[in-house]
Design a protein around this nucleic acid. Structure first.
Lengths: 258, 258
DNA sequence: AAGTGGTCTAGACCACAGT
DNA sequence: CTGTGGTCTAGACCACTTA
């Protein structure tokens, strides 16, 4: 047992936790069709022996795949492969640039306006600060292969905004430099709804004022739960959709009025 | 240790797994402000002793709260309360009726059309069946406190549709009778985007043809991964929004083109 | 240096599916 | 009845945060 504990460190040295590497291996095996479409996975016991780990570690790995909707999980029968969908990393959801690259398209961005000043009550609440605290605001037009598809209004607390303000004005990605600076994004909450373009939206996106847009509001926090950014992104119709997988066991989705 | 195993059954007798009950207790404690807003939870060891369970069980319970975005989770420090948001059950996401009741509003529904016939290729794919297989189709207008807000087009495989077809035409809920019949919903995939009302949408919702609607397409499956229903729901603007919480550890959300 | 959560092991019994 | 996943326990060591 003691030796086992050591594996926690020894196994983790190479590339993160053992169960994460195992999850990646299994995901790749599934994607390669090793178990067939709709096929069955080996039992937990078999996987444990094959990979030289305990059943507990196998279960941790499988829990990841289940949360991603890749496999079923029920008592009595082996897990069944549901899909081979490539998993989108958490970071790809935060970074427009990373997302675009994963799509094989060329991300672009033009900074329309960048400023700093005291937070109004609404902004303060989004970032969990006291009204009047200094914040940074960025307004950018985002393009995919040169075509405008989204307008992004983001606010950052002082310490984050300082990094953003120091970037090349033509920098395509703002999120990546932050990560390089050691800023760790841990959680995010996304709310999707429908709004109508105001004059500024319309001018920048090249649509008519009052025309419908898909809005995604997002709040990202660090591991301590401290807000790192708050953003209001508006997409032209037909350019994007959002998909969520959920189950009785893990429900991260909710439907709200208005 | 053997006695411990017995707790798996003994503890579970009352109302499901021990860790689920513990998760519920903790959620209520948080909601009641027992730990304060932004306060810290007791350590895992303390919780284990207080509730007479092992640390592993405490961790399972906390994992549930974390997935719901209620608490943080990081090495070195105690968990911090992020919010007290009432958790929406998985079932509330599937059932318009349950959702409406939870909001304190009066759900209503008028069945516009119900029919059965062979699945076309598209429908067959949604339900994972062979084209030509018999399916059931239901078109319903949904209201909240008498006001129309959504138009719902759902298809069911034969064995499910048979139950639906046998219901009172004025039945408000279709999902609940299914649950009563022993149909178990285990997983769902929701895709949200923006579409324009066709003539039928417009006539039923009382909006203009071509006006924007928020669309949620949903596929629900049983524990074995077999599709139970596929639905295309279209909401009037301003009546609904969807919120997702995700983290680096569990990413069930994805953004897609078009 | 102490405290806390993250990871891993080993073993046990139970609930459920399938034969 | 047998196999498989679900739940729970007990114990260990590590990585990280905080004082």
């Amino acid at each position: 047992m003691a030796g086992a504990g050591a594996a926690g460190g020894a196994g983790g040295r190479a590339a993160g936790a053992r169960y994460r590497r195992l999850a990646t291996e299994l995901r790749e095996a599934i994607a390669s069709g090793a178990y067939g479409a709709g096929g069955r996975l080996p039992s937990e016991e078999e996987l444990a022996q094959q990979h030289g780990v305990s059943r507990g570690t196998v279960r941790q790995a499988l829990a990841v795949l289940r949360a991603n909707g890749l496999v079923t999980s029920r008592r009595g029968t082996r897990r069944v492969v549901l899909g081979t969908a490539r998993t989108q990393s958490f970071f790809e959801l935060l970074s427009f640039t990373r997302w675009a690259r994963a799509l094989g398209e060329v991300p672009g961005g033009r900074t329309i306006d960048i400023s700093s000043g005291p937070a109004n009550p609404l902004e303060a609440e989004q970032l969990g600060l006291e009204p009047g605290t200094q914040i940074h605001r960025v307004l950018r037009l985002r393009t995919l292969s040169r075509v405008p598809i989204m307008i992004e209004r983001t606010i950052y607390p002082e310490h984050i905004g300082a990094v953003i303000a120091g970037l090349d004005p033509d920098a395509i990605s703002h999120t990546e430099p932050l990560a390089d600076q050691g800023v760790v994004f841990a959680d995010a909450e996304h709310t999707v709804d429908l709004v109508y373009a105001d004059d500024e939206d319309a001018r920048l996106l090249g649509c008519d004022p009052g025309s419908p847009l898909m809005r995604e509001r997002r709040r990202a926090t660090d591991p301590a739960g401290t807000p790192l950014e708050w953003s209001d992104d508006r997409y032209l119709p037909g350019t994007v959709s959002f998909t969520v997988h959920n189950s009785a066991a893990s429900t991260a989705l909710s439907r709200r009025r208005g």
